[in-house]
Simulated assay, not measured.
Amino acid sequence: MKRIMVDGLPDDPLAAAGVFHQHWLGHVEDVLVRGEDVMLQLPAADYTHREWRRAIVAGLARKHTPRRINMVAGEGDAVDATDTYLAHAPGITGQYLET
């Protein structure tokens, strides 16, 4: 599973979704089209970011089945443990997880 660390997102949720679509979406879809499963790592954010993050990862999972993609917010050991878990859990895709 390829981990893509997404950075440079603004604090405003609408602006963050726009930056993700403009700067990250194409790269993520290229990786999925090449046949790799993906875990997106984003910085932790407050509740105002949940909906756009859930919508993006669910949409990507539907579009790129059978490839798997999940999104994890946070940093450190908890994200590493989640990455290890997801790599060995072939039925989990389209999920937004906060560590």
Rank of each mutant, 00 (worst) to 15 (best):
M1I: 08
M1L: 13
I4P: 01
M5K: 08
V6F: 09
G8L: 07
L9H: 06
L9Q: 06
P10S: 12
P10Y: 14
P10N: 14
P10H: 08
P10I: 15
D11E: 12
D12F: 14
D12P: 09
D12E: 13
D12L: 13
P13R: 01
P13A: 05
P13F: 08
P13G: 03
L14M: 12
A15W: 09
A15N: 11
A15D: 15
A16K: 05
A17M: 04
G18I: 10
G18P: 08
V19A: 08
H21P: 10
H23W: 15
H23M: 15
W24M: 02
W24G: 01
L25H: 14
L25V: 11
G26W: 13
H27W: 13
E29T: 04
V31Q: 04
L32E: 02
V33I: 10
E36L: 05
E36I: 07
M39N: 02
L40S: 02
L40Q: 01
L40A: 04
A45K: 00
D46G: 06
Y47V: 10
H49K: 07
H49G: 10
R50I: 09
R50N: 13
E51N: 06
R53A: 00
R53T: 01
V57I: 03
A58N: 07
A58I: 00
A58W: 00
G59E: 11
R62P: 06
H64C: 04
T65K: 06
P66E: 13
P66C: 06
R68S: 03
M71N: 13
V72Y: 00
V72I: 09
A73P: 01
E75Y: 09
D77A: 05
A78W: 09
A78E: 15
A78M: 13
A78T: 15
V79D: 05
V79L: 06
D80N: 14
T82W: 12
D83H: 14
D83R: 01
D83Y: 15
D83K: 03
D83Q: 08
Y85N: 09
L86V: 00
A87G: 05
H88P: 10
H88F: 13
A89Q: 02
P90C: 08
I92C: 04
I92T: 11
I92M: 09
I92P: 07
T93D: 00
G94D: 05
Y96P: 05
Y96S: 09
Y96F: 10
L97C: 10
L97F: 14
L97P: 12
E98S: 04
T99D: 12
T99L: 12
